[in-house]
Amino acid sequence: MNHTMSMKIDTKRCYCVSGNVIAKEIEGELVIVPMIADVGNLDAEMYSLNSTGLAVWKQLDGKNDLEHVITALSEEFATPYDQIKDDVVEVLEQLLKKELIVEA
């Protein structure tokens, strides 16, 4: 697993879901459970992402850079790129900080 020391998001990089989480969509929200050594980490918080965060999460396949992800979300939400970019970067910074995603 790559461990990204800096929490700064680079839109030219690709990001993907960490191998140390399990995530399940429940009623349109994403419940994320951190794992440690392939079991639920009792000391870690569980997280949930709302529908917007879920849309971002689903795009993080590790193959497309973040600019591509933002473009796709901009089309999905019919929102201008520049308007949605800051929100997406903020979500990713939080996810990266909690080690729920990694640089691919």
Binding site: I22, K24, I26, E27, G28, E29, V31, V33, M35, D38, V39, G40, L42, M46, S48, N50
Partner: peptide, 26 residues
Amino acid sequence: KKQIARKLVQSMVKPFLTPEDWEKTL
């Protein structure tokens, strides 16, 4: 339903389980 699911997840006693078990529990 989202609020209900959120509250139920918060109320569960977090178990020491594998990913497959977590999938079942959720």
